[in-house]
């Protein structure tokens, strides 16, 4: 019966590994919550929205206003997604309907290269090229605009790749039927292909949005890192992610708890986005196929 005992052992060891892998996210969230607890308990949440400034290190009069950071995260994310979405979808339409498949395959390779580009390399390039260019227009250069431009470049391949996959999943018979009715290529794209691929394209955009909220390196290198609500796109900002990256090295006590709270907010927002996505995906499959 030795073989059966081995079988039992393998089953339980694999089960243990699976529970560890699946439970890891709970451990992380619980850990963040424990870390953020001092900040949540001591009445600080009121000050998150009440205090006008972010000066958590100040001994005399610490200020815990989170609003500038949340506004920074929101603005840079929305700005970057708004830039990347039309470019990504238009490019996907072009390569799906206007270009032979042989050429289209090379574009796919390039998009994968762009998607695999390390954030730190993009941030470095932005610092060497984009920031000086913007600074010539309007100093200081490190700004909402610089971070959003490079961030858009970073999330563009996500939108382009998912959009093209969604467009190529539109049943050929629908397109042939459109052609049989004498509808031109543009009309077919606008009236048949895009509406049928709407769900897939939408999930791609949401995925890109989630990626942009959590992105750290590009933002920390390019946004200027001043906690304020920007008056124009040329003003520096300081999103939640770069605040964590810059301050977790030295933060102590309630300041540190605040960083955990920031991390918790990020995880919850992105979790909601991605969780909502997986709920959406099911009905979608039924309508397309």
């Amino acid at each position: 019966m030795c073989r059966l005992r081995v079988d039992w052992l393998v089953r339980h060891v694999l089960g243990l590994l699976a529970v560890v892998a699946g439970g890891l996210v709970l451990v992380i969230v619980w850990y963040l919550f424990q870390g953020a607890k001092p900040a949540l308990e001591s009445g600080l949440p009121r000050r998150f929205f009440g205090d006008p400034e972010w000066q958590p290190g100040s001994v005399r009069d610490p200020q815990y206003g989170l609003v500038p950071m949340l506004a920074g995260s929101f603005l840079v994310t929305v700005f970057a997604t708004a830039l990347a979405t039309p470019l990504g979808i238009a490019g996907a339409v072009f390569y799906q309907f206007y270009v032979p498949a042989r050429v289209s395959r090379w574009n796919l390779r390039c998009m994968e290269l762009l998607a695999g580009m390390p954030a730190v390399v993009l941030g470095f390039w932005g610092l060497m090229v984009v920031v000086p260019a913007i600074s010539r227009l309007e100093p200081p250069g490190q700004s909402l605009l610089a971070a959003a431009l490079v961030l858009a470049l970073m999330i563009l391949p996500i939108i382009a790749l998912t959009s093209q996959a969604a467009l190529s999943a539109v049943p050929l018979s629908h397109l042939q039927a459109a052609a049989g009715l004498g509808i031109g290529r543009a009309g077919m794209i606008w009236n048949i292909a895009l509406p049928a691929a709407k769900g897939g394209i939408g999930s791609g955009v949401l995925l890109a949005l989630a990626r942009a909220i959590g992105e750290t390196l590009v933002v920390v290198m390019l946004c200027g890192n001043i906690a304020q609500i920007p008056g124009s796109v040329f003003d520096p900002i300081r999103p939640v992610t770069s605040t964590i990256a810059l301050e977790m090295g030295y933060a102590t006590a309630s300041h540190k708890a605040l960083l955990y709270a920031g991390g918790l907010i990020l995880v919850l927002v992105i979790g909601l986005l991605v969780g909502g996505l997986s709920f959406r995906r099911k009905p979608n499959h039924n309508t397309v196929h």
Binding site: I28, A210, I213, G214, T216, T241, G263, L266, I270, V274
Partner: peptide, 8 residues
Amino acid sequence: LASVPSIV
């Protein structure tokens, strides 16, 4: 877990 940002 896949959706947790790297800074976290």
